[in-house]
């Protein structure tokens, strides 16, 4: 299963550098512009200016840290043959398409903002992030970690940090920080499963699958289904994630363990998505998106978010309440 992942679907298109691929990019651009005009109206000067722009751009930091770096690919351009560039382009385009088609959201700001992504950031850089302006991806250290653009859920995760910033604005510390992290995993995994055309029940629920290089004892960075089981390696240590409130980790590391305690709401989403049924993106994902955009405060904790999801769940309220109970969190 290790590599039976989006790359088959995405990379095939990328490597082919074919006309169909360019046509698909062009289609996305056209569709983006059409949606934008339909919602904003063509008369507005702002709308015209933005709609004539491009919904995404990929830049290359050429292993430095100056951002955004050199522009290397925009919609309509053929695949470049550089894996990181083409993975970032296809992943960002697919994430934008999911937000538009499933959640009726026009880019991260819901106003059609261009998404900038930079690849080949720094040297041996084992990370990816949203810096408030753009997405940034490292190539990994070449020993334990490969490219951070390779798993498409990383791209969805990072773009979702931008969405969260522009909606609930969850403070990146403690429970609200772990929720912020979890929401990025929720829409990252929804993107992965959508591209693989998997139902919530069929999926493996692994985040960062395929990022480890040969020799690392692990299948992925996180498991939303079984937090704490993704890797156990002599060099890297064991996956420290927890999946139940009784195991919540109080620490000053990592802004209060935001990547550790995110396992709790992650597993709640897995339980909800499998109970609601269908695809994660269109089933429980719609409920989570409605909760995220329902006006919750920046300091929302797990119980507060649980309540917001139950309130947004309609006929699935019982399923969602039970999912949170399953990780030791009570929705009011």
């Amino acid at each position: 299963m290790r590599h039976a992942f989006v790359p088959d679907y995405l990379l095939e298109r990328v490597r082919a550098m074919d006309d169909a691929h360019c046509a698909r990019c062009a289609d996305l651009t056209l569709e983006h512009d059409r949606r934008f005009r339909a919602t904003r109206g063509a008369q507005s000067l702002t709308a015209t200016a933005v709609a004539s722009g491009k919904p995404w751009e990929i830049h290359d930091a050429e292993h430095g840290t100056t951002l955004p770096g050199r522009l290397v690919r925009s919609p309509g351009d053929a695949a470049t043959g550089d894996d990181a560039t083409d993975e970032a382009a296809d992943g960002i385009a697919a994430a934008l398409a999911m937000y538009a088609e499933v959640y009726d959201r026009d880019s991260f700001d819901d106003k059609g903002a261009d998404v900038l992504g930079t690849v080949h950031y720094d040297q041996n850089y084992d990370n990816a992030f949203w810096n408030g302006t753009q997405l940034v991806f490292g190539d990994g250290d070449g020993k334990a970690f490969g490219r951070f653009t390779r798993p498409v859920d990383v791209l969805g995760h990072e773009l979702t940090h931008a969405v969260t910033e522009r909606t609930a604005g969850l403070t990146y510390e403690g429970q609200s920080g772990a929720l912020n992290e979890s929401i990025s995993d929720v829409f990252g995994i929804s993107l992965k499963q959508r591209l693989l055309k998997q139902s919530a029940k069929q999926a493996d629920w692994l985040i960062g699958e395929g990022i480890f290089l040969a020799g690392v004892k692990g299948t992925a960075l996180r498991s939303m289904k079984a937090p704490g089981t993704a890797y156990d390696d002599p060099q890297l240590g064991k996956d420290p994630q927890v999946g139940d409130m009784k195991d919540y980790v109080d620490t000053s590391d990592d802004n209060g363990g935001v990547h550790t305690n995110s396992g709790i709401p992650n597993r709640a989403f897995y339980l909800a998505a499998t109970a609601v049924g269908g695809s994660a993106a269109e089933g429980a994902g719609r409920i989570w998106y409605a909760a995220l955009t329902s006006g919750i405060g920046a300091d929302t904790d797990f119980a507060g978010f649980a309540t917001a999801t139950v309130d947004a769940a309609g006929e699935h309220a019982d399923d969602v309440r039970k999912a949170w109970q399953g990780v030791g969190v009570t929705a009011s």
Partner: peptide
């Protein structure tokens, strides 16, 4: 060093 996408210290 803690945190980062991978959350590996």
């Amino acid at each position: 060093r803690t945190g980062g996408f991978a959350g590996i210290s």
